[in-house]
Simulated assay, not measured.
Amino acid sequence: MGIRGVSLVGMANDPDLLARRASSFGEVAREYAEHRPDYPPYGIAWALAGCAHAVRDVLDLAAGTGALTRGLVATGHRITAVEPDDQMRAELSRRVPEVPALAGTAEEIPLPDNSTDAVMVGQAFHWFDPERALTEIARVLRPGGALGLLWNGEDDSVGWVRELVRLNTSSVSRKSRTMNELPTHPSFGAFEERAFPHSQRRTAESLTATIGTHSHTTVATAQERTEVLSRVRSFLDTNPATAEGEFDLPLRTLVARATHHP
Rank of each mutant, 00 (worst) to 15 (best):
V121T: 05
L111R: 06
E98Q: 15
G159W: 03
H77A: 15
G159S: 14
V73W: 00
R95H: 13
T105W: 05
D129R: 11
D156I: 14
L92A: 11
L111K: 03
R94Q: 12
S115F: 00
H77R: 15
Q123S: 02
A146Y: 04
L134T: 00
A101H: 06
P110K: 04
L111Y: 04
A138E: 01
D113K: 00
L102V: 12
A81H: 09
R89A: 00
A118C: 11
R78G: 02
E131N: 07
G76D: 10
M120P: 06
T75R: 14
V158M: 12
T80W: 08
E154I: 13
R70P: 08
I79G: 05
D85W: 08
V119C: 06
G148W: 02
Q123W: 04
T75C: 07
V73C: 11
G144H: 08
R132D: 13
G76L: 13
A90T: 09
R78N: 12
R95M: 15
E163D: 15
A90R: 07
R70I: 14
A118H: 07
E163Y: 06
V158D: 11
R78S: 11
A101S: 10
E107Y: 01
R89G: 08
R162S: 15
E131Y: 11
R162G: 14
E107K: 04
T135Q: 07
A81P: 10
L111D: 02
R95T: 15
G159L: 09
W151G: 08
M88F: 00
A90G: 07
Q123H: 00
L102T: 01
E108K: 10
G71M: 00
R78A: 12
H126Y: 04
V96W: 09
N114M: 07
Q87A: 14
M120R: 00
V119N: 08
A101Q: 09
L92Q: 06
A74R: 12
M88W: 09
A118P: 09
P100G: 01
A90C: 05
R139W: 01
P100C: 10
E91V: 07
R142Y: 02
A124S: 02
L72N: 03
L147Y: 08
Q87F: 10
R78Y: 12
V140Q: 00
